[in-house]
Design a protein around this nucleic acid. Structure first.
Lengths: 228, 228
DNA sequence: CCGTATTTGTCCGTATGTATG
DNA sequence: ACATACATACGGACAAATACG
């Protein structure tokens, strides 16, 4: 593991590698929101000293995944229900823009690929293969935002997705939610394939807004004692 | 200078202070896009060692103001015309959302403050006081995005504004641009004051789109040999 | 193309502050 | 409330790579 890191080190710096690794550890759920991150623990795990680890943590702090309390250390950030709702609103705006731009710019080949995503998800839904659906769904969304050719948009959107994983009551979606959500995918792709920007915009915004509704209605009212 | 930093150090960590200071140095134009940042130079300037400086630079990298080439160092990021245009598109989407949310949630007191901003700008425009107009304009935009109560939105928007200062052909706006731009402010505030979300959304999006048009049409076609 | 100076990358040591018994 | 253990914060030193003459 350490040797592997050293091999790659030639092209990418150690702090950047650590940043990716730590991010993966957080997003995979091994470190949960609110958890304290001990520098030495990370350093030992990856066989480095604390210097590069601190740099990596500082990078993750700027991207919003962790936060620092000056003389106490770094903690995995915790998203309240309100913050999650706020993020969904921003995400809806960005995804709407993505849909509009995609409808304006997509190639015939791109349309084919979009339809392939949808039919693959059709299969997963029919088979009730939730795990595969989630994977395809993420790839589908990523394809849409990257397909716009607007890298600022893609980066912002993908960063927001990561933030949402810090919300404790996430991924409660299953069963009916999967069906309802996927039904919207068809509408989105149809609008893009028709190269209708206004329709695509509306469909993409609506897709995120209904996802927000589903998540929020599924979330029990929890005391909000930490709004930052 | 150093002593001052040490005084404040009790509440905020040194790397965070350095991050703010370096960001200020960049945004004030002392360091220009493309410039190389030498760690030791920063360290000497603020009387610290290189460790905290490296952490600060790593933070600025994640927020997009600088970029790192592995064994060569950090450089102030340079925005191409296309990248600037992309950022404007994202900014328009976010600002549109801000206008909509503000129209839905603003208090009577908030409306009063908005109108005060506009009348202050009226005065600045009438006096052709461009410098004051720019200051007020920024405060006005910040008031709008913060007034939504959506911190994710405010942070993303303000980060984008910073990015735009990395575009070389920026701030060419003067004379007619100031008048045209300010005329749109009236429309925006009227829509918000009428608590009409749809109208406010449209006015805010339009405001950023016309700003993009002005900037792009004022920009000579430059060779784009660096698209990342 | 080679040698030297400069700069980055990493590690370690010490001090200071915080949590815990 | 006090002492101890632990973790962070910062500075400094050494090795390696790059830039420059």
């Amino acid at each position: 593991m350490t040797l592997h890191a050293i091999q790659i080190l030639r092209t990418s710096s150690l702090p950047m590698l650590l940043e990716q690794e730590i991010e993966h550890v957080i997003l995979s759920g091994e470190f949960s929101p609110g958890d304290r991150i001990i520098e030495m623990e990370i350093a030992l795990r990856f066989g480095t000293s604390r210097g590069p680890v601190r740099e990596a943590l500082r990078g993750l702090e700027s991207s919003g995944l962790i936060e620092q309390v000056p003389k106490r250390g770094f903690f995995v950030r915790r998203l309240s229900a309100k913050q999650a709702a706020d993020v969904y609103d921003v995400r809806a705006a960005l995804f709407g823009l993505a849909g509009k731009l995609l409808a304006e710019r997509i190639t015939d080949d791109g349309i084919t690929k979009l339809k392939n995503f949808v039919s693959d998800m059709d299969t997963a839904v029919a088979a009730d293969d939730f795990s595969r659906y989630v994977t395809l769904n993420f790839a589908f969304h990523e394809f849409i935002v990257r397909g716009t050719g607007n890298t600022a948009l893609a980066q912002q959107y993908l960063a927001l997705i990561k933030h949402l994983r810090l919300y404790r009551a996430r991924s409660l979606m299953f069963g009916d939610s999967m069906h309802a959500s996927h039904a919207e995918h068809h509408i989105m792709v149809d609008a893009v394939a028709a190269r209708d920007p206004a329709k695509a915009y509306a469909a993409h915004v609506h897709h995120v807004e209904t996802a927000k509704q589903r998540l929020m209605s599924a979330t029990p009212i929890i005391s909000e004692h930490q709004e930052k």
